[in-house]
């Protein structure tokens, strides 16, 4: 079973040299810590920055320089700052190669819900609806089950949707899945170290399939 950093580490392996990448809030933010040194990647922050660097050293925080999670950050050499309309322009125009975001629920057809629990919690969708509607390559980083132990990989989402049939890949503490948006279903691609196919099957409420032997993740 992976912890949050383990999920981030596995997702970092999906990032290729030359990619522009948008990282959402939460586990996706951690992915930046595991990008290999030998590839060049530019991180986009949707408030209006390309070239996001690490957190600043204490005393060097700049209130004019934050990421989409409102955290103080730094800029790397070659960075560019722009307004929020251009930021979503480049997202809509599919200039961003990879988007990684969190989710409350994902359906077997690749629907995603991550912005609202009616009557309980209303945070808003922020940029998530724009990202899932336009991005060509989205990976969801999420826990396989909620606090009540119920699967978050469902036949259909129960919460208000963020986007329809847009998620192709999900990485959890237990597994890596491919989503079959045509026929519906979670195809198990990899197991977390020490986790069996049966354990993953039992934690997946949506349709579940495998293709031959399922390898363990290489981290």
């Amino acid at each position: 079973m992976l912890d949050k950093n383990g999920i981030a580490k596995r997702i970092a392996k999906e990032i290729k040299d030359g990619y522009y990448v948008n990282l959402g809030i939460g586990i996706p933010t951690l992915v930046a810590n595991y990008i290999p040194d030998d590839i060049s990647v530019v991180l986009q922050s949707e408030n209006g920055l390309l070239g996001m660097g690490p957190f600043p050293y204490e005393g060097e925080e700049d209130p004019d320089l934050i990421n989409a999670g409102k955290q103080t950050i730094t800029m790397l050499p070659g960075s560019a700052v722009f307004d929020s309309a251009m930021s979503f322009g480049m997202i809509r125009a599919q200039k961003v190669d990879l988007t990684i975001l969190g989710a409350m629920e994902v359906s077997e057809y690749g629907d995603i819900a991550n912005w609202k629990i009616p009557g309980k919690l209303v945070k808003g969708m922020g940029g998530a609806m724009d990202l899932v509607a336009s991005a060509k390559n989205i990976i969801v980083a999420m826990q396989q089950v909620n606090r009540a132990g119920e699967s978050k990989l469902l036949p259909a989402c129960t919460l208000p949707l963020t986007g329809v049939r847009c998620i192709r890949k999900v990485v959890t503490e237990m597994a890596v899945f491919e989503v079959d948006a045509e026929n519906g279903g979670f195809c198990l691609l990899e197991r977390a170290p020490g986790v069996s196919v049966d354990e993953i099957r039992n934690a997946t409420a949506g349709r579940f399939s495998t293709r031959g032997d399922v390898p363990e993740m290489q981290l």
């Binding site: 309309a85 322009g89 609202k116 808003g124 724009d130």
Partner: peptide, 19 residues
Amino acid sequence: QLLSGELDVELIPQGTLAT
């Protein structure tokens, strides 16, 4: 204020807001 109905709220996607 939102959950109590005192405030009218329209939540819209960030890119839609900007554009």
